[in-house]
Write a protein that binds this DNA or RNA. Structure first.
Lengths: 293, 293
DNA sequence: GCAGGGCCTTCGCCGTTTGCGAAGGCCCTG
DNA sequence: CAGGGCCTTCGCAAACGGCGAAGGCCCTGC
């Protein structure tokens, strides 16, 4: 029923070398054995996989498809092997996490650092991604823990409050806007320094602007919070950032923060998993730590 | 050396049922055989995978990792099986394509339609993606043909010119801007209707605006060319679109096109593959058709 | 035009692997 | 402390998978 990875690897070599005998040699098999393995593969899927001739073999269209998938499968197996070899070397746990930019630039590094300090033999794999893709990845099981913003569709997932993430505006010292608080309706009259529009935050700003019936005066769009701060300092306009990023980047170069009073400026980040009780114990521990933290 | 997929599936069931006997039953194996398969899996990777007790089994941390990868591997195998079963049903070819939005909304549907008309038993899988991700996918072999914009980093790939893709501005009838041609410096004084900022086009506009030292007056951002046209018609501002999209959506609702004279408005789309001669014959044929078309 | 050699398949044999039931150890439950 | 559920180990039989030899096919070169 299920194909043999050895046969798949043999098949792949046969396609690449255009020769069964060479593939057999590379796989340390006798030609007879190789031939039978391929025949059995064909039988298993009910399709002819190779055209045979006196000059060698050539993949059929189905054979091409199989070669494609065989590569993926073997590649996947390699990753598996690599990961398990970590365990042989003393690692005691492995957790895959995907998080959005705001989480990664603000709270996650600290929280994860505290976690690995306590569990030094747990390996974390952190990947940055957009909230929607994170939800997808969780659903299809290609990651274990996700950090997303509220508003993301979490159908079919379990989620828990992580941190609050407030958006603030930053202006250079001496900017005309002197207040400590403002509504977005006032900010929007000024030029803005924005992020690339894939960011969830930019969508929020665009929606808010549409609501007000005003254009967004985006003067530049850059891809990092730090770059936003530099450009704000250079007088290109007002920046909008998560509070934590403003603290890290804006404060140190002397930008002033302005509290945004609109309700949408208060965002909630969530820790999401597919099923908490299907998670590994150490994974659950990390979720608990994040949610408690 | 290479693990047996049957053993992986058995292992997965054991982890999920927390019981070797149940897993053995589900896999139609005697308990003894199941036990031995797991032991052999542990030997193969040199790690303990399960904690055994009189109450059943529990995955070790390494076991959790293996379970994760086993799921992926088996899932992948299922897709393989599904695809090969197409061939058993008479499909004669299968090509995976990823393309950016501009290509998908303009030229690709027509070109692909012509191709499948000629090769009706070839199944095409088309996925929309961003140019950068497409290049990644080609490099790691998870797609066969990619359509990207010039300017994308194609290191390590082979590429061929596909179609030229000119950006044009669209305005409602009676708009103040009366010309047939304009430089972007003039357009930028008006409100714009933009796309979500992940789009390559928006990055182009943002860069052009930065070059001019002017803000982009983005009034709304939407996610489809069609929506841009509707909003332009509603008087929200000037739209910028690929020429082909303007022809399809803008012309029919009576918008006027303005040629953008700046050099960056002329973009070139490329067909990219990892290695042309590693492609299936029908894949090569499609590339040839696209490049010739 | 035919011998030679390279390619794959098929065949028969044999060693290893794999499956099975039975027996055994362990731990919790009552 | 007997009973039952769990997993492992054991010995045996069947099946699988490997091997070399033989065979068919086609191209090459003398």
């Amino acid at each position: 029923m299920l194909p043999d990875l050895v046969s798949l690897s043999l098949f792949l070599r046969a396609v690449e070398a255009r020769s069964l005998s060479k593939a057999a040699a590379q796989s340390h098999l006798a030609l007879a054995a190789a031939s039978r393995r391929i025949a059995q593969l064909e039988h298993c899927y009910g399709v002819q996989l190779l055209y045979r001739s006196a000059q060698g073999v050539e993949p059929t269209p189905a054979g091409n498809s199989l070669a494609f998938h065989a590569r993926q499968l073997l590649h996947q197996e390699e990753r598996l092997r690599a990961e398990l070899s970590d365990f042989a070397k003393g690692i005691r746990g492995h957790i895959r996490i995907q998080a959005n930019t705001s989480a990664i630039t603000q709270f996650l590094p600290g929280d994860l650092a505290a976690f690995v300090a306590e569990f030094p033999d747990v390996k974390l794999e952190l990947e940055e991604s957009r909230s929607i893709r994170i939800a997808q990845a969780l659903r299809e099981g290609s990651t274990e823990i996700g950090i997303v913003l509220n508003g993301t569709d979490l159908q079919g997932l379990e989620s828990f409050d992580y941190r609050a993430d407030r958006l603030v505006a930053v202006v250079p010292r001496g900017h005309a806007l002197r207040r400590r608080k403002a509504r977005f309706a006032e900010l929007i009259r000024h030029d803005l320094v924005g992020l690339d529009s894939g960011a969830a935050m930019m969508r929020l700003l665009a929606d808010a602007a549409a609501e007000l019936g005003e254009p967004l005066r985006l003067r530049v769009q850059v891809s990092s919070f730090e770059a936003v701060c530099k450009l704000v300092q250079a007088g290109m306009g007002i920046g909008v950032l998560p509070e934590g990023a403003a603290r890290d980047f804006a404060a140190v170069i002397g930008l002033r923060q302005i509290h945004i009073e609109d309700a949408w400026a208060a965002r909630q980040m969530l820790v999401a998993v597919r099923r908490l009780d299907a998670l590994s114990p150490v994974g659950r521990k990390l979720v608990a730590r994040l949610v408690a933290g």
